[in-house]
């Protein structure tokens, strides 16, 4: 009996340790292919996705990331989901992206889109997108609404976009 309790408490401590290290390391940042992004682009859910295209090397992108983080926090209990799509090169995942995400304690969903032939997928995000970043797509599949912006957004612009074009209770 005592033996079992020891095992149980050992297991408990191990779990704590695992959770602890998990938190210390921050979120995992997966390297994904186009279908992963398309799941959001074609989602039929009544969820408003705010998909922001950024990269660690892009200064205006890095400057606007906190606005998306703040919005995600504010709408944590609502069907609003911020997706931060990093366009850093796959080879920079360990060296640049993960340290950046951890240093800035990013809470929104982050992944690196590893699709070097950009001409093949940029038009799928929005036909008007020339490829400049930052760029942001807001979309709600259930309501068949989408809005694309190829510019940095101020917190006020972002909030205004969300509340005017994607009201939670229409």
């Amino acid at each position: 009996m005592a033996f079992r309790r020891t095992i149980a408490s050992c297991f408990f401590v191990l779990c704590l340790l695992a959770a602890g290290t998990g938190r210390a390391q921050g979120q995992r940042v997966p390297l994904v292919k186009l279908p992963h992004l398309q799941r959001y682009l074609t989602s039929p859910a009544d969820t408003t996705y705010i998909i922001n295209f950024w990269a660690t090397w892009c200064k205006p992108c890095v400057e606007e990331l906190p606005h998306f983080e703040a919005l995600q926090k504010e709408y944590a209990q609502k069907p609003v989901k911020v997706i931060l799509v990093s366009l850093d090169f796959a080879k920079d995942l360990e060296k640049k992206v993960i340290p950046f995400v951890n240093r800035n304690k990013l809470q929104s969903t982050v992944f690196v889109l590893d699709e070097p032939d950009q001409n093949a997928w940029i038009p799928l995000v929005d036909p008007s997108w020339s490829g400049a970043i930052p760029a942001t797509l807001l979309l709600n599949g259930a309501r068949k609404q989408r809005f694309f912006v190829e510019k940095p957004l101020s917190p006020a612009q972002l909030k205004e976009l969300l509340t005017s074009k994607f009201p939670l209770n229409p």
Partner: peptide, 15 residues
Amino acid sequence: TTKAIGCTIKWRGDS
């Protein structure tokens, strides 16, 4: 016409 990722042009007056 083709598309590619690039840095947005830094326009005067933009933050």
